[in-house]
């Protein structure tokens, strides 16, 4: 792949039947592009958990995806209520999910930690009352590197809200 492919998905906060549709479309696209299955799996989990979060916590938003030669980048932007304490929100089991989430089968407080686990880099920025942006990067070569037993280059810790 020489050129970066840019995709944008609008995510509705009210059409619950459509929740997860963008993730499904992205998955199909990655498959068509011949991205390795294990990479698709990690991107799909990141995107789907993030998409559902925008639906259940923020009344929808926009997902921008860039597929480059080495990495897949995802920006999930919403103008929802924001996250007051990001460190707390990242803890397994922490959830403020209400009935809307429960009815969809979500609200275990597992989404953000799983997105963190499945991505190679994740940054959450949020302003209470204004919205949340989640950035994630999934390295395309990583699964192959792991499989061949090569040592991986750990990404350096960044101060601030990098988690």
């Amino acid at each position: 792949m020489e050129d970066t492919i840019k995709l944008t998905y609008e995510i509705s906060g009210s059409d619950l039947l459509q929740a997860g549709e963008a993730s499904g479309l992205l998955k199909l696209r990655l498959k068509q592009l011949g991205i390795p299955q294990e990479v698709i799996r990690r991107v799909s989990i990141c995107m789907y958990e993030g998409e559902i979060n925008m639906v259940i916590h923020a009344n929808g938003g926009t997902a921008d995806v860039e597929i480059g030669a080495d990495d897949i980048f995802i920006w999930l932007k919403d103008t929802g209520p924001g996250i007051p304490d990001i460190v707390k929100a990242m803890a397994e089991g922490f959830s403020t999910a209400g009935k809307k989430a429960r009815d969809l089968g979500f609200g275990a407080g597992m989404g953000l930690p799983n997105m963190k686990r499945c991505s190679d880099e994740m940054t959450v920025t949020s302003t209470v009352g204004h919205g949340t942006t989640v950035f994630m990067r999934v390295h395309i070569g990583k699964s192959a590197d792991v499989a061949s037993g090569r040592l991986l280059h750990a990404s350096p810790a960044t101060p601030g809200y990098d988690i």
Binding site: A19, G20, Y48, I52, L104, G105, M110, G111, N114
Partner: peptide
């Protein structure tokens, strides 16, 4: 019945048993 648990724990091509009858079970 909780889809984010499914998304956290399932590692291979497993069978899903659930009481959540909703499109998210299929999407997950």
């Amino acid at each position: 019945d909780l889809m984010s648990d499914v998304l956290s724990y399932v590692k291979s091509e497993a069978l899903l048993l659930t009481g959540l009858v909703n499109p998210q079970a299929v999407r997950t």
